[in-house]
């Protein structure tokens, strides 16, 4: 096995530093597998939501609740953050540590913006619309599915935030590169999940 930190000196960093060591390659593969499991997790949550989405128990319905402009703004923010995380990985492949950090910071800020909108949305539902976890089977399924996604975004924001700190302290090395790469994979995954939430929960609720 190659010793990881010995190759961290700038200049000798390979083109794809995330795949330079066996540990790095294992991490990427293991993370793909983990995302396979995550797909089943969200698949089950989606199935639950689809089964219960019309069970409103005389509470607010999807059509009454959702506002597409707010959700569209959240979608736009999250999609752009996925793009910026692509730029971050491209900067990493060009060994531009400063650009990498900058794109990651922008990704985190966009992620926080998305979370802010979601917290605002949930707050409105609970206070103004009297739509809480216990209102109906629809509300339980809605908060669980969208909340699971929101928790994933929050975890991702903290994770990438910590990685930015590590990049400042340790620089771009064959140890930090796989971490950045798998966090970007994670970020894309929760972005894809959001696309499905936007379609299945919001669009279908509004027009379906």
């Amino acid at each position: 096995m190659t010793s990881a930190h010995a190759e961290s000196v700038n200049g000798s960093l390979p083109h794809e530093p995330e795949k330079a060591t066996l540990e790095g390659r294992n991490k990427v593969l293991g993370f793909w597998l983990f995302l396979g499991g995550e797909s089943v997790l969200f698949g089950t949550l989606f199935a639950t939501f689809l089964a219960l989405r019309n069970q409103t128990n005389d509470g607010p319905t999807a059509h009454e609740l959702f506002s597409l402009p707010t959700t569209a703004a959240a979608t736009l923010i999250l999609l752009v953050s996925s793009l910026t995380s692509v730029f971050a990985v491209q900067a990493m492949h060009r060994h531009k540590a400063a650009a990498l950090r900058l794109w990651l910071i922008i990704t985190v800020i966009l992620g926080l913006g998305f979370l802010g909108l979601e917290v605002y949305e949930f707050h409105e539902y609970v206070t103004a619309e009297k739509f809480g976890m216990t209102t109906s089977a629809f509300s339980s399924a809605f908060y669980t599915l969208v909340g699971f996604h929101g928790a994933h975004v929050a975890f991702g924001v903290c994770w990438i935030g910590i990685l930015i700190g590590q990049l400042y302290k340790k620089g771009l090395t064959v140890v930090t590169a796989p971490k950045v790469y798998v966090s970007a994979m994670y970020w894309h995954f929760i972005d894809v999940v959001w696309v499905f939430i936007f379609s299945v929960v919001y669009l279908l609720g509004k027009v379906g």
């Binding site: 219960l52 069970q55 109906s136 089977a137 629809f138 339980s140 399924a141």
Partner: peptide, 10 residues
């Protein structure tokens, strides 16, 4: 929550 509570739509 009401996932399995029939009276509330579960």
């Amino acid at each position: 929550a009401n996932f399995f509570e029939v009276s509330n739509g579960g």
